[in-house]
Each structure stands twice: as structure tokens, then as C-alpha cells.
Design a protein around this nucleic acid. Structure first.
Length: 326
DNA sequence: AAATCAAC
DNA sequence: GTTGATTTG
């Protein structure tokens, strides 16, 4: 199962923050938080991200540490929140729940053995995005005046739709799904060190001389979040098969194979539930003091975890303010 | 989570 | 080329 490994097919290139200055980037909130919670935050210093009262605040710290990158480079993030779960994804959700429960069991075992390292690793797997995390994330974004859009379903699909309509310049994501959802340009590694990476849909299609429909077919053949791919079929095999036979159905026919829900998965990528009913203002003026008070006073985050982040946000605001006068 | 490596 | 395990960040 699992995700299509489209990396080897994607047209990627480096891009500098200078070139991106002034752009608006739609970020899938779920993905952004999930990645942040499971990688940067959880591994080493788990204690720091849980308050004395036992509240999970890693998301708040993650935002305060991650957002300055946007502000400092004059990039405006628009956070897109997931709507209801697609029914197709029920399987996936159930699977994740099972995986989580399993991980929780293993973690309990590890703790019993006194194996702290193993327990910490497993903790990452038990991680989930709770309602509290979603709500506090929204609250903090609001205080920082960061635009938020509600997706009817998949955040990635909505973000891609907004990019297709030209309402944002880029989608910010680490996933390759945005290619399938039709996002013209996706930015990767926006919060890591070094330059971001630009993923170009048109260049990807041109490079392999295929259409977006065919790219979706390739992905379905290798497996996506929504369907099991054919075993033994990876990106290379899928690509040449689609190029040879034309589309998914012809490939399945030729290989006498069957993929559950293939038609619906295809539809989901090519014509996902999205909305034009959104509105946001990219001229943002964060209330840094209120944000700091919210994080430190209301939620009990240690001040030294967020001081630097808030300082960076503050000084980036001064900077852009000056730019307007020069 | 990405890169590398071994096995099929 | 694909997959699974492994390591490192």
C-alpha cells in the first residue's frame, strides 16, 4: 500500500527565497502540522512540547518556529484546513487507527522494558492531530493574522485548486499529490534549511510526454493514499505502461489486473471536491504580543521555546515596514 | 522522512 | 526496477 513514489518522475528544481519574495503560498495545514509534529519536534526533546498540565503544544511551538521563515522572506502563507474525510479514505483511516493502536501497544511494552528510546520512536507513530491541536493552531494563526481557508475535503486538493485559479502563487507541500490535483507549482522544503525546491507540473508532464490524466493513472497504478497499487509496479513500470497503452483502463486490461475503486480515485484527483467560496487578505498585520501571550500565558509554553521565533516575526515586520518606505 | 543498500 | 530494512537527521 502507501503513497505513489512520484519523486523520480517529478520535475524539481531549486529556487531561492529572493525569487519567491512577495508570493502567496497555500499550505495544507494538516500536512504541515503532521510533518512538524512527527519530525522536527517529537524526536529529541519531547518534554519541551508538553506543558506541566500535560497539554500537547508542539503545534504552537512548531508554528512559532516555522512561520518566521515566511515572514522574513516576504511570503504570505494561507493555511488550508481539511474538511470532512473522503469516504474513500475510510479504509485508510481505519488502517491508520489500527496502526496507531498497534504502535501504542508496542510503546507500552517498550516502556515496561524501560526502553525509552524505542518508546520515544513509537510515540511518533501514535501521534495524531487532536481537536485541541486544530483549534489552538487556528487561534494562533488568527492572532498572527495568517489567512485560513476551510476545504470541503482534502486540503491539498483545495490548495491546488486555489493555485489553479491563480488566487495563490504556489502550493506549499512535501507531497507529490499536488501534482495529481493539478497544482501548477508546488514549493517543497519551505521550512528546512537551504533553498526551497520548486515542483513544476507542466514540466513534469512535458518531460514524460503525458497528460495530467495519464500522470494520475501512473500514480494509481503504483498506489496512492486512496488505493493499493499493483504489486511489482513502481513509477517506471507504470509510466511506460501508461505510455504504451494510453490510459489506466487499457493498462489494467492488458495486464488483466483490477484496482478497487480505481474510477473513483481517478475522479478524486481529477475533479476533487473543492470550493470557490473563500476569501483572504494577504496584507497581514500580526499581533505578536497577543500571540506570545496566548502561547506562553494561556497554554503554558516555556517562554524560551518561542522567544526567538516571536523575535524573528517581530523584526521581519519592521523590515517589511521599512521596505515600503524605501 | 530521505537516502542508501540488499534481495528478489 | 521494486521492495523492505536500515540508518541518520
Amino acid at each position: 500500500m502507501g503513497n505513489a513514489d512520484l519523486r523520480s518522475l517529478a520535475a524539481l528544481s531549486e529556487i531561492s527565497f529572493e525569487e519567491l519574495s512577495g508570493s502567496v503560498v497555500a499550505v495544507d495545514a494538516h500536512n504541515w502540522l503532521y510533518r512538524y509534529l512527527t519530525t522536527t519536534v517529537k524526536f529529541t526533546r519531547e518534554e519541551a512540547y508538553t506543558t506541566d498540565s500535560g497539554e500537547e503544544v508542539a503545534n504552537l511551538i512548531g508554528l512559532v518556529q516555522g512561520l518566521p521563515k515566511f515572514f522574513e522572506h516576504d511570503l504570505v502563507p494561507v493555511f488550508v484546513f481539511d474538511g470532512g474525510v473522503t469516504d474513500l479514505k475510510d479504509d485508510e483511516v481505519a488502517e491508520r487507527r489500527a496502526a496507531r493502536e498497534k504502535a501504542e501497544e508496542l510503546k507500552a511494552d517498550a516502556e515496561e522494558r524501560g526502553d525509552a528510546v524505542a518508546a520515544a520512536r513509537l510515540e511518533a507513530r501514535t501521534q495524531r492531530l487532536t481537536d485541541v491541536i486544530h483549534e489552538t493552531t487556528r487561534d494562533l494563526l488568527e492572532l498572527l493574522d495568517v489567512p485560513v481557508v476551510e476545504a470541503p475535503a482534502e486540503g491539498e486538493a483545495q490548495a491546488s485548486h486555489m493555485a489553479l485559479r491563480g488566487d495563490v502563487d504556489y502550493v506549499g507541500s512535501e507531497d507529490y499529490d499536488t501534482l495529481l490535483f493539478g497544482a501548477p507549482y508546488t514549493l517543497r522544503q519551505l521550512t528546512s534549511k537551504g533553498n526551497p525546491e520548486l515542483m513544476d507540473l507542466e514540466a513534469t508532464l512535458a518531460e514524460h510526454d503525458i497528460t495530467r490524466e495519464q500522470l494520475v493513472d501512473v500514480a494509481i497504478l503504483c498506489g496512492t493514499d486512496f488505493n493499493e497499487g499493483l504489486s511489482g509496479v513502481g513509477p517506471k513500470t507504470a509510466l511506460s505502461a501508461v505510455r504504451e497503452h494510453g490510459d489506466l483502463w487499457a493498462v489494467l486490461d492488458a495486464r488483466e489486473a483490477y484496482i478497487e475503486n480505481a474510477d473513483r480515485v481517478r475522479e478524486l484527483f481529477l475533479d476533487p471536491p473543492v470550493t470557490d467560496d473563500y476569501e483572504f487578505d494577504t496584507d497581514i498585520s500580526p499581533d505578536v504580543d497577543a500571540a506570545r501571550a496566548y502561547v506562553v500565558d494561556d497554554w503554558g509554553v516555556a517562554a524560551d521555546e518561542v522567544d526567538r521565533g516571536f523575535e524573528r516575526i517581530e523584526s521581519s515586520l519592521v523590515q517589511t515596514g521599512l521596505d515600503e518606505w524605501t
